[in-house]
Design a protein around this nucleic acid. Sequence first.
DNA 1: CTGATTTATTGAACTAGTTCAATAATTTTC
DNA 2: GAAAATTATTGAACTAGTTCAATAAATCAG
Lengths: 195, 195
Amino acid sequence: MDFELLKENFSRHMNLTPSELAFICGRYEQREVAKGEHILRKGEICRFEGFVVSGCFKIYTADEQGNEKILYFAAEDWWVMEIDSFTNQVGSALNVQAIEKSRILFITKTAKERLYQEMPKVERLFRIMSQKAVVAWQRRLIRNHAMSAEQRYHHFITSYPNIANRVTNKQVAAYLGITQEFVSKIRKKRLSKKI
Amino acid sequence: MDFELLKENFSRHMNLTPSELAFICGRYEQREVAKGEHILRKGEICRFEGFVVSGCFKIYTADEQGNEKILYFAAEDWWVMEIDSFTNQVGSALNVQAIEKSRILFITKTAKERLYQEMPKVERLFRIMSQKAVVAWQRRLIRNHAMSAEQRYHHFITSYPNIANRVTNKQVAAYLGITQEFVSKIRKKRLSKKI
DNA sequence: CTGATTTATTGAACTAGTTCAATAATTTTC
DNA sequence: GAAAATTATTGAACTAGTTCAATAAATCAG
């Protein structure tokens, strides 16, 4: 198993010794996920906290009419889970589906609680990570209010080229909260400007 | 000083003994804030993590043309701070202004770090609180994508009647990400339906 | 490789929400 | 308590983004 990416991820938030990193990573298991496979569906209880080693996932909701709102994409070096469902063992509000053949490292609820007990420093690590997540979500919300659809599209493809290249326009639309048709029109407009 | 509300807030997230609660609260100081006063401005470094005991604040950004986007309102029992600025001592992206005469309890950066050192359980407390905050921000983002302006208005006034009654329509508009005029039109429409 | 399904593009008609401007109501200030 | 300032309401004209429908392009399953 390759924990390098995960160790780098942890180290970005907090200084940890090699043995501390090894100790933490030792609690994670690996899993391959086929393209199209759901690792979590709305209503199920989220049994894992996952870290994407390769591939890509979409984290989304779908209403009765089946139209999807993609909350975020998780490619390499991102986390996949439903925090509320994992933490409180309640039904998940979100679906998590692999949009590519993927590999994840994951930790179960009991292993995570045990890790917190055995190594209180991990509380600090995840406290810091969660706080950074709050900041990121706040910023995205402000962007959504302050920017037009075209500006959000531009922001997305320039901020996350690695993801933008791998997902369909339909998925980009579901992420930005606009229609697929309008994404097409934005693309056309941008294209004609650049020539 | 009255720490009851703060103690209840902490206890909602985690079981703490009376002496633990007293120990934590002992690190907080009190401050009165006049209506209209800014306790943090964009670019300044956030020196406190605040808890609203009475009154109400708006946490917002403003662009060059001066139009405001209100990220959230913080009345009694809410937190006021700029997490990124407080945690990393960098310039704040947000402004925090009292929209009523208010009273807050606050802790400084050094007192907070000392508290984490002396009582590792506090890391857990704030880890849990931060995770709940992530969930709340994710849900708000989904709501913004899935609901029309009218639905968001309705959700806001029914979910937060206590805040909706105290803030101006202009502020509600800046919070919902729509124009003041459109809020007026929504209100008119709702009013005519109810009679 | 081929047929079947999904996705992307385009245009025309539409609508939710904006902008601008003017007036009324409310709040603030001294 | 009156003048000044801010906020709320209303309507008309506008625009960003949607909906629907039809065709083209790409992807998938066997």
